[in-house]
Design a protein around this nucleic acid. Structure first.
Lengths: 223, 223
DNA sequence: ATTTTTATTTTGTCTATCCAAAATTCCGGT
DNA sequence: ACCGGAATTTTGGATAGACAAAATAAAAAT
């Protein structure tokens, strides 16, 4: 059984790989996200490499092996299911949930985990809209699509807001159109040049296709 | 913040003190219940004594200081609330809960703990009938009273069955009148010489006062 | 092509926790 | 008063994980 420390390294490597298009993860980056000195990370990575959980080229970065990825996904699953449990069942403020789950993810057995999964109705996304891997470590990969490519009724979460303009970002922020937010597409009026969407728990917004094209959504599986 | 290891030592010292009428806890006993070699326990106890969490006389055993006891109670509270959560909310088989809670008790923050407490309706006993310390570390000590001293409507858990007769013990066993079991007093008919009680989740039983006088109950606070 | 900067790896230490086995102390039986 | 065994403490050593600071390699800038 992997220690909590090892689990943390694996999880962070996984998340960093994801966030950087599957490129190998640089040591410095890993060290700071795990929260240790660089030398510490190097040492740990060597032992992970010995255990065949990562592939490691000195000065070339790390990347998970398939065994390592499997384990990482298992940690991520625990993390996200716990987050959801804390929000949905214990009504914990969602800003606190991530931090709490950070501890709990290492203390949940498989048996308890499956009970949580069942209690929550086998959810597919956590409170941030991030996908929850299945027990077998499968993750539904969703290529984000522009809002202009969505159809009414679809649901998903905002994956990216591709504009650097402060005004636009502030507008998006004001209407809760921020990455991670779960949204529903209410209407798409091609001729009226407008898309109406509802961010979860917030008022709906109508955007021109021009603006809508800058917002990318990861759709949930068929709703 | 105390490490999980330290928390475990404190918890076990507390439980052993309780189980042995507040006598100081012998090293060997402590070592085996914590699951370490005797020398390891001695070493740890020295550091706990330095931190003023225990009083320690070489070869005289250990006993918690009031600070140590406070911390131990906090761990016990987490343990027992988690057990109850697992049973009541996640419907985990109760034979598994103790083991699971053993891990989780070290990963629950105060915030989450109070949410659990609230969700469960501020319970006073765990699934085994053991009392749950309050957030401030108070434990309602309940002097067990004979069933013949109970009034209808009262609830509690069986503390003791004071008879050595096998027949009687088997009778008690059959009707789930075993130590730790939570029960409700349904009726007490003084003139009919009978007490009727319902063990939790089981059929009610009616006992003559003769038998009832042999069964001692730790009553929950006013229900 | 050098020099400078930055990232990474090494090296030497530290703490917490554990074990095994030797040394000690105490207690009951003679 | 003495001895033997049980409990306890010491001693010596191991492992996981972490840091700081020196050494090195690679990348950038001149």
């Amino acid at each position: 059984m992997a220690s909590a420390t090892v689990e943390d390294y694996l999880k962070h490597i996984y998340l960093l790989e994801q966030a950087d298009m599957d490129n190998p993860v640089a040591m410095g980056r890993l060290a700071t996200t795990v929260g240790v000195a660089p030398g510490t990370a190097t040492a740990m990575i060597k032992t992970l490499a010995n255990a065949h959980l990562v592939d490691y080229e000195p000065r070339g970065g790390v990347r998970l092996t398939s065994t390592g990825q499997q384990m990482a996904l298992h940690v991520v699953r625990r993390h996200r299911l716990v987050e959801l449990l804390l929000v949905e069942v214990l009504s914990l403020d969602w800003s606190l949930v991530h931090h709490e789950a950070e501890q709990l993810e290492h203390a949940i057995s498989d048996i308890v985990l499956e009970k949580i999964d069942a209690l929550l109705g086998y959810p597919t996304v956590d409170p941030h809209g991030d996908p929850i891997p299945t027990a077998k470590g499968h993750l539904k990969y969703v290529q984000p699509v522009s809002l202009t490519d969505c159809k009414p009724g679809q649901q998903g979460r905002i994956a990216r807001v591709s504009d650097q303009d402060t005004q636009f970002l502030q507008f998006a922020e004001r209407h809760r159109l921020t990455p991670g937010m779960g949204i529903t597409i209410d209407a798409y009026d091609k001729y009226g040049d407008a898309v109406t969407v509802s961010p979860k728990h917030c008022d709906s917004v109508t955007l021109g296709t021009n603006a809508a094209s800058k917002i990318f959504v990861a759709l949930s599986k068929k709703s």
